[in-house]
Amino acid sequence: MPRESTLHLLLYATAGLLAVFLTIHVALHAPGLFYDTYKESVQRESVRKNYENFGWALVALLIVAVIHGLIGLRGILLELRQGPRWEAFVNFLVVFLGAYMLGLGTYTLLTWLGIIHFGG
């Protein structure tokens, strides 16, 4: 495990990046800005365009959000209970969730970009 100060520096750095990325991400789905309606923004056609045009930006959002959210979650859980077994569990949970989200998120993007082929 990295030192606590390193983790929290990451928490703050990712917070700053999220303020930019997440604003753009939400604006992309807000009615009346890039699409006339919310529903239009989540149509498969719009989503395809997003993944194909800003796919790597979406992965950047993914990475930043996962790091920030999980360090935050870890903090809350460490406050909730104390003890070496709980701390080990929390660290495991956070790494597990991170691996799941990063794995699945990149899988989706790579599939859209045609690098991996959707098996279904």
């Binding site: 989503v47 395809r48 998120g105 989706t108």
Partner: peptide
């Protein structure tokens, strides 16, 4: 923050459905 971090894994699961 708690709501967002609970939402995020679900959201990533849901957006993974866009490929299908």
């Amino acid at each position: 923050g708690l709501l967002l971090i609970i939402y995020l894994p679900v959201h990533i699961f849901v957006t993974s459905m866009t490929v299908n």
